[in-house]
């Protein structure tokens, strides 16, 4: 199991190779790359910041939730921090299971959940200057996301 915050480029082959096992017939990956536009504005680069220790802990929580929900235990997740240019990989996820259905579900759940509870922040640089993208405020009482906002400050 890989749950990693890194300032180095993400190697998807490393993530998938870590799930190489004869009983795992379904392997699903998600690659999140830096996009050149956001909310109708051009984006030239992104900066990702993290609270690394808590982020890796919360990624492990996501992995536990995936095991409970889908029975999938073969996961690899890596999120990059630092300055990224357009097209670079910001987040990579690989999920493997005996059959495809659970692998698809695990992969989808992982990326959605990372965006909700893993303390990583994104600052956009573009035509309109720079802004923090605030996707998801966490309700501390429940440790669950409030309504998604996607506002820029």
């Amino acid at each position: 199991m890989i749950c990693r915050i890194t300032d180095s480029p993400i190697d998807m082959d490393e993530l998938t190779d870590s799930l190489d096992s004869p009983e795992l017939g379904g392997l699903c990956t998600f690659v999140g790359r830096v996009r050149n536009h956001s909310a109708g504005q051009g984006v030239t680069r992104l900066e990702y910041h993290a609270y690394p220790e808590m982020a890796e802990k919360k990624m492990r929580q996501v992995a536990e939730e995936i095991e409970e929900r889908f029975g999938v235990t073969h996961l690899a997740m890596a999120h990059r921090i630092g300055t990224l240019e357009i097209g670079e990989v910001a987040v990579g996820i690989a999920a493997a299971s005996a059959h495809r259905d659970a692998a698809f579900k695990a992969c989808r759940y992982a990326i959605d959940r990372i965006k909700q509870i893993v303390p990583i922040w994104k600052k956009e640089y573009g035509e309109e200057g720079m802004a923090w993208v605030e996707g998801c405020a966490v309700d501390a009482e429940t440790a669950e996301p409030q309504k998604a906002q996607n506002q820029r400050v």
Partner: peptide, 12 residues
Amino acid sequence: LALIPPISGGCA
């Protein structure tokens, strides 16, 4: 202890 503003990890 830490202050955690709204998060925006991942990639849409």
